[in-house]
């Protein structure tokens, strides 16, 4: 049986959840599984291209410990997943509107474009959807 595509809806800005989402996405993508990440709500602000380093995650969850241990940056891991595997990332068009942003406000070379929730949910019917 062919492996189902994996759809990840990322809405949390917490470092813990970002770390987990980026690990799941990158490992699945390099394991010959198609991965599609939809970034919405507070999670999208984390991808502000003008935010610096670990400050973008605030004091959430294990951020301090992960920084102290020099754990891989989630944004770098999303980038590795795209580079080494079959992975797309989509910015929630509604949140871009709320923030008054467009794709140029986001970290370079990660996003494949913007998408509405309806289209993402429709696409996700053919695979496995997890929400973080």
């Amino acid at each position: 049986m062919a492996t189902q595509p994996l759809y990840i809806m990322l809405s949390s800005a917490d470092r813990d959840k970002f770390q987990l989402a980026s690990m799941i996405a990158s490992v699945a993508a390099v394991s010959e599984r198609s991965v599609h990440v939809f970034v919405s709500m507070g999670a999208l602000k984390v991808f502000d291209k003008n935010a610096s380093g670990n400050e973008r995650y605030g004091d959430s969850g294990l951020n301090v410990e992960l920084c102290d241990q020099n754990a891989p940056d989630p944004i770098d891991m999303f980038g590795q997943g795209k580079m080494l595997g079959d992975m797309t990332m989509w910015a929630c068009s509604m949140v871009l509107d709320v923030l008054g942003w467009n794709e140029s406000n986001l970290v370079d070379d990660l996003f494949d474009g913007q998408m509405g929730l309806t289209k993402f949910l429709s696409d996700a019917e053919e695979g496995q959807l997890i929400s973080i």
Partner: peptide, 17 residues
């Protein structure tokens, strides 16, 4: 010294070469 999934990613990148 690299945390999960760093070693796997390094391996995969090297396998491509």
């Amino acid at each position: 010294g690299s945390f999960c999934p760093g070693p796997l990613m390094e391996l995969i990148a090297a396998l491509k070469l």
